[in-house]
Amino acid sequence: MEPILSVDHLSVSFTRYGRGLSRTELNPIRDLSLRVEPGQVAAVVGESGSGKSLLAHAIFHILPRNARVAGDIRYDGAPLTRERAESLRGREISLIPQGVTWLDPMMKVGDQLRRGRRDPDTRTRCRQVLERYGLGPETEGLYPFQLSGGMARRVLIASAVMEGPRLIVADEPTPGLDARTAVRVLGHFRELAEEGAGVLLITHDLELALTVAGTVSVFLDGQTVDHLPAARFQSGQGLTHPYTRALWRAMPKNGMEVSGL
């Protein structure tokens, strides 16, 4: 199947100007590649600092201004340029950010979800999407500081799926959620995929990823070291890269062995 999102040899680097003429080059993403097909949850697994969030931000063209991006990002068969991303953001492609500080502290939840629209259709969809994540209509009138961490996280997720996007990039969507809610949220991702969307699930939790993902990309220090069907992890057979094997062994059901990680 034609992928809805494909990333090839992406690199992201930052130039920092120090004192005088000294310049340091940071290169947190060196060579990332992955694909997301419609109807599929594709997981990206990597430890903290491996470049997962930068990847998400690169797709949405919201990297800081001093970032330089090289490589190929294609959406729906065509390059995802800045202009194209700007016209697709919030409609066809939507981001679930990593932190709950991504909500405007001075604006009520309902206003943030509705983005300034007041028509009855938007209002209904707003209520429905909140309900889908177990949030009552009273949530609309709350400010972010009145939400618990888990509620805020669900608001972010609700905000991302409200417009029925074709590609969802979820950056660590589950921390702060209790196990049952986390499973339910992942279940929703699966449903969205079954409805035809592509979901890029970014997480450091391989076990959680395997509950919904069809494919798993493993990141290490800004590089893709493995890109595998999730089924391979069931048996643990055919995991060639040592880092991937170490990840697999660290999973609870495989003895939680952390040596070599």
Binding site: W102, L103, G116
Partner: peptide
């Protein structure tokens, strides 16, 4: 420079 402005941009918000 805040995250919520970044998010507003990522959601294609206007104004």
């Amino acid at each position: 420079d805040s995250d919520y402005i970044l998010f507003a941009r990522a959601r294609g918000e206007e104004r």
